[in-house]
Design a protein around this nucleic acid. Structure first.
Lengths: 119, 119
DNA sequence: CCCCGTTATATCGCGTGAGGATATAGTTCG
DNA sequence: CGAACTATATCCTCACGCGATATAACGGGG
């Protein structure tokens, strides 16, 4: 069988999952992540500062993200900002969680748990 | 004031979600819930005793389940067992979580987060 | 009949993590 | 100048998952 010890990591919290997704296409700094997530989820997930920076610390520790040294053009930079970049391990984690969600969604459909009689 | 914060309850933990699903069609006792969940998830979620009974206590407190007085036929009963039944609020919670998962699955699909290039 | 593994419920304590409150400081704009 | 916004960081508390442990009834084999 497959030696898939890799993606056997447990499920990601919604917070970590959304942070990783926000970094899939661009490096972002913390405050921008908060805005991006709130925007993409239409406000249903509003990360508080402590949640974000706590999560970032753990994600750095676990190798899901790294701090990026690349800075934007100096005329539109802000020295306070710290940019983060998703790692290959981070992308694997996103894939694993996406798979988990897809499987779960299939189970939900199979069991008819969604109200098919809308208001 | 808000008339009522209907299903604005936060997301369910996988543990609570799966326990509620196991009670959707039948009243079950704790030990049976553990086996049902492990079975349905093909072993990917194996509730420990402390997790189960801790969760049950909270779910009773929050009105997601009630203890059922109905017993099975006395010849196939076991006095030690305590049976639990899902409440309307519990079903609402399942629906809400199912919706959340379906939305998430759609977002996953839209963003192409599932590897379409296997191996 | 007794032993033992399984069934069944329950509690304790630890570690992790989410989030409110708070601190600090630079930036922008009236 | 000062208020609001941007930006990062830490403290503290609470909730929860889970290993460890306790207790006890059940059922079958020796």
């Amino acid at each position: 069988m497959s030696p898939k010890a890799l993606s056997s990591d447990g499920p990601l919290s919604p917070q970590v999952f959304h942070i990783l997704i926000s970094l899939c296409n661009n490096d972002l700094h913390g405050y921008a992540i908060i805005r991006e997530v709130a925007d993409r989820t239409a406000g249903s997930l509003t990360l508080s500062a402590s949640t974000l920076y706590g999560a970032i610390k753990r994600m750095l520790r676990d190798g899901l993200i790294t701090e990026s040294t690349e800075r934007p053009a100096p005329d539109q930079d802000d020295e306070r900002r710290r940019y983060y970049r998703i790692t290959p391990a981070g992308r694997d984690a996103v894939k694993g969680e996406s798979r988990r969600i897809a499987d779960l969604a299939r189970m939900v459909a199979d069991h008819g748990l969604l109200a098919e009689h809308e208001s």
